[in-house]
Amino acid sequence: MIVPRIRLAGVAKRFGPRQVLAGVDLDVMPGESLVIIGGSGTGKSVTLKLILGLIAPDAGSILVDGQEVVGLKGAALDAHRARFGMLFQGGALFDSLPVWRNVSFALAGSAASRRAAAIDNLARVGLGPEVADLKPAELSGGMQKRVALARAIAARPPIIFFDEPTTGLDPITAAVINDLIRELATDLKITALTITHDMHSVRTVADRVAMLHAGSIIWQGPLASLDGCDNPHVRQFITGSAHGPIQMPGLANRPAR
């Protein structure tokens, strides 16, 4: 039996009065690219932060390579985090450091070797060595995303998280980023977990799709079965309709036209 790379079982998290996750069960298998879809505020980012150990769940278990993550501390938590790379929604580049120091941030070694590694990784995401000495603020949004992507893969972690990789990008840049993620996931044989509400991303990046709604996973399946899926929540989400079982708070009583 293959041990799932990541297994969430009954994971719950509450922020004040808001129950964000109410028992999430989800497996991510080694080498697959899973995309979690769901509306804004459904706890997708929270799920990633729970797995990384940035926040602790109220209940449930999170296993990575069969090892329990909840309650890890100190060196064990550091070792756990060493398995992950993460592309943050806004890039989260350190704006006080030049591009090459951002990309090579988690790498050890001399400055020259780290700089060379940074340039290699920049090349992987289609950026030339001339950007290495620029500051993040001097780059366009799409280039910042690419630099952040280079930083996420630089230490060659076996698992990479992509948090809303295309948010704030124009459709063409978004398509380039999606292709890059797909390419890197395949070439580097990583396990990829992406959260998005961009259906273009889903179709390019995913092997398998899971939908998070009202604090739990309400549907999951291979990408190919997404369009044939008869779950009304999923149908409403993938067709992008304002009408259906998912209602925006405050709009629930508006008459349908």
Partner: peptide, 8 residues
Amino acid sequence: DALVTLRT
């Protein structure tokens, strides 16, 4: 958060 994920 990025610092933490980069093990710093």
